[in-house]
């Protein structure tokens, strides 16, 4: 049974899934950059939440939940409300639509990001594939 989002188990499952996904490995083969996800509390999430994903040359090298006060920095910071992240994970909101309609904020190297939009979309596809139940759902 898939892990609930957001949780440490969901993150570990994401890591394993990415590392066996051939399409991701191919499209993201040149990607070098870790990502910090900042999730703002809306809906069922009542505290801000942060998690970290280290992506490198088509692999996921590591994941972790990031507690408040942790000083880990990443090449990219993605910020969105919990409700919008859930919509993306459930395929109800396209990730590019989220970025272009101000529902998901990106910080980091724009040249790098814009050269690698297909990698970003493949990452989201993997995250969607493993997402079942989310916080706030029965």
């Amino acid at each position: 049974m898939p892990s609930i989002f957001p949780s440490e188990e969901w993150l570990l499952e994401l890591k394993d899934y990415i590392n066996q996904d051939e399409k991701y490995a191919h499209i993201a083969r040149n990607w070098e950059g870790d990502v910090m996800f900042h999730i703002e509390p809306t809906g069922a999430l009542i505290e801000p939440l942060c998690f970290y994903v280290d992506l490198w040359h088509g692999e996921c090298r590591g994941v972790k939940m990031v507690p408040t006060g942790d000083l880990t920095e990443a090449a990219f910071d993605l910020t969105a409300s919990y409700d919008n992240i859930v919509k993306v994970l459930k395929g109800q909101l396209d990730p590019m639509q989220a970025m272009l309609t101000r529902k998901l904020q990106v910080k980091g190297s724009m040249p790098y990001m814009m050269r690698n939009v297909p990698t970003v979309l493949e990452f989201v596809r993997c995250a969607q594939d493993i997402t079942g139940q989310v916080l706030g759902e029965n």
């Binding site: 272009l100 101000r102 998901l104 724009m110 040249p111 814009m114």
Partner: peptide
């Protein structure tokens, strides 16, 4: 602060060319 603005400022109107 907008994402598209950041792309246009950093990369110009050809920011989307690769995509």
């Amino acid at each position: 602060q907008d994402n598209l603005t950041a792309s246009l400022r950093d990369l110009g109107s050809a920011g989307g060319a690769d995509y």
